[in-house]
């Protein structure tokens, strides 16, 4: 799914990375636990989170994630948007909750990450 489709489905505002919206994501992962993101995410994955601190962008950078959706209308500070711009990570903001946003994306064909335990 293209990031611009994610934007439409979630009626999301683009905080940065307009030029990245044509990029594809293959999976999505919803979590407020960054260590779990680092442990389980592979490939081109979209992160949905309610956390808005700098470590979310750092986590995305390290795990090669190309886009983050902030759920529940939680808007990160300018410093975080600047860091994501520098690291070429698209930031989107939706008023949907994690559950609703995940359901909408899944219903539109965006799969979750498989976890090997």
């Amino acid at each position: 799914m293209k990031i611009c489709e994610v934007k439409l489905i979630l009626n999301a505002e683009v905080l940065c990375g307009e030029e990245l919206l044509e990029n594809e994501v293959s999976y999505a992962f919803g979590s407020d636990l960054m260590s779990d993101v680092l442990a389980f995410v592979k490939g081109k994955t979209l992160l949905l989170t309610g956390l808005t601190n700098q470590q979310v962008v750092r986590t995305a950078e390290m795990a090669d994630l190309s886009a983050i959706v902030f759920v529940r209308g939680k808007k990160p500070g300018e410093d975080i948007i600047d860091l994501a711009t520098e690291k070429e990570i698209a930031l989107l903001l939706t008023r949907d909750t994690m559950y609703t946003a995940s359901g909408k994306l899944y219903g539109n064909g965006l799969e979750g990450v498989t976890i090997d335990l």
């Binding site: 407020d32 636990l33 960054m34 260590s35 779990d36 993101v37 680092l38 442990a39 989170t49 956390l51 601190n53 470590q55 979310v56 986590t59």
Partner: peptide, 15 residues
């Protein structure tokens, strides 16, 4: 609250 401290750090490094 920052999304860390879940007890995954060392196991993640090993993985």
């Amino acid at each position: 609250e920052m999304g860390f401290g879940a007890g995954m750090g060392l196991p993640n490094m090993k993985k």
